[in-house]
């Protein structure tokens, strides 16, 4: 599947309080969460983001709390993929578990600027920056994680496993 959209650029250590401030965690409703996505570091994001847009960021994206509301808010805002130099551990798991595509690729993340048009081929792990003309390969997923992604996340994967093995 190839996605192409406008790039949003952030720096290192984008924490989960920045992605979705805790004051909005009194709900689990994704649409409500998406209204406040990135609010404290980019007040205009939630209003301007379009379906298919792509976030590019530096190291340690999603650091801080374990709140799954963070990848849920990003996904519900319409963002199709996050490309970062690296991801914080819990965010990485959460994104895979809920089916938010993420790719680890320092070079592509560094090359992208806000407003660039980015194209991502998830199956191939390919990232093209149509504004600079550069192409990059993201780090491949281990086979088990590919299985998770193909199943549609951890819940459908576990359902399959429970059905097969009890």
């Amino acid at each position: 599947m190839t996605i192409s959209g406008k790039g949003w650029k952030y720096g290192d250590n984008v924490d989960t309080d920045a992605i979705i401030p805790a004051r909005y965690l009194n709900t689990s409703d994704e649409t409500e969460l998406a209204k406040h996505c990135m609010e404290d570091i980019d007040a205009g994001f939630a209003r301007a983001v379009k379906p298919g847009d792509i976030i590019a960021a530096g190291n340690n994206f999603g650091c801080g709390s374990s709140r799954e509301h963070a990848p849920l808010a990003i996904k519900a805002s319409g963002v199709a993929c996050v490309v970062a130099a690296s991801f914080a551990r819990i965010f990485y798991r959460n994104a895979l578990n809920i089916g938010l595509p993420i790719l680890e690729c320092p070079e592509a993340a560094a090359d992208a600027l806000a407003g660039h048009t980015l194209e991502v081929d998830l199956a191939a792990g390919m990232i093209r920056n149509l504004s600079t003309g550069n192409s990059y390969h993201a780090a491949p997923y281990p086979p088990f994680m590919l299985e998770l992604i193909e199943a549609g996340g951890l819940v459908p994967y576990t359902r399959q496993q429970l059905a097969e093995h009890g």
């Binding site: 709390s65 374990s66 799954e68 819990i90 798991r93």
Partner: peptide, 29 residues
Amino acid sequence: ADSHTCTYGALGAFATGMGSTDIAVAMAT
């Protein structure tokens, strides 16, 4: 499902934070 679950390492345990979906699966299985 709280990032500071790692606190229990002080007792010689392996304790780690995860998200809600992971915890749902752990509660079930």
